[in-house]
Design a binder for these strands. Structure first.
Lengths: 143, 143
DNA sequence: TTTAATACGACCAGAAAAGTCTGATTACTG
DNA sequence: CAGTAATCAGACTTTTCTGGTCGTATTAAA
């Protein structure tokens, strides 16, 4: 329904939480899950993905957990969406370049949809974790 | 997956097609469906919804069909999405104001998500059917 | 050695999206 | 007036995705 998934929401909640702690202060999945009423296992999977893609760093074993491994102003929404949901395309064809679309060549909306996709990506790229933490999302001025 | 639905795609294809015809030149669901390889019945439902909401006008009976009932520069993407998919919210909570969210009050991302939602709506509102037809989507300049 | 954490993948249920089908209504046309 | 070609409406099915759960392995501190 053209809506961010729970996984993205959970990612943002977890990342902002970790970002608000002092550096090298470890957060666990359990801690975040209970604090924000998020299913632990699901959050864990999300955190594992964020770890694999280098947004956070994991520490195993007891007293382990996660810490942010990038500065909040170096992580943007577009990156996070791509990490959690895989390749993002505003429309089905704008993601694949129309490779698997029966219309592809004579599709009347492919070109504008690709442009739309680029605009969306540009905007989402400009929104950093820092913006989310500060509660101040950049404005998008149309020209 | 944060992607426009087929229904929206079909709406845009149909609307741009109708918009490219001369005024009062009728298009049928069958015609558009076969031209763009869209399932006829599904397209029909989409067109019926667009008719109910006043974007197009239907003519029943043989030689019937649909015509655009608004100027292409008076129809924007945000409207179309709302018409076809119902209320839109970038995040679950940003749509309902957090009414049904367990986190609501102490959710760390509610405020920025609502801002994000407004920015998205503003941008999508600025994209008109005319832009889609011309293949020129407005740019969104971040500040 | 115990324990408390992450790591990973399989699995399931429910919801949503996409598509199909049936039948009714409308109104033009021969 | 009958036949036909279109919309209208809604129920239904199929498929895909999401959200959530579970079980087990691994790691490393205490």
């Amino acid at each position: 329904m053209f809506q961010l998934t729970k996984k993205i929401e959970y990612s943002l909640i977890a990342l902002t939480y970790m970002g608000s702690k002092k550096k090298e202060d470890i957060s666990t999945a359990k801690e975040i899950a209970s604090l924000y009423q998020i299913p632990r296992e699901l959050l864990a999977k999300v955190l594992q993905q964020l770890n694999r893609d280098g947004y956070i760093r994991s520490v195993q074993g007891p007293r382990g957990g996660y810490v942010l491994s990038r500065s909040p102003d170096e992580v943007n929404l577009d990156d996070i969406i791509r990490t959690i949901e895989g390749k993002r395309g505003f429309t089905e064809c704008s993601g694949t370049g129309g490779a698997d679309c029966v219309r592809s060549v004579n599709c009347s909306i492919r070109v504008p949809m690709e442009q739309l996709d680029r605009q969306m990506a540009a905007f989402l790229s400009s929104v950093t974790l820092e913006h989310v933490m500060r509660g101040e999302i950049p404005s998008c001025n149309i020209t």
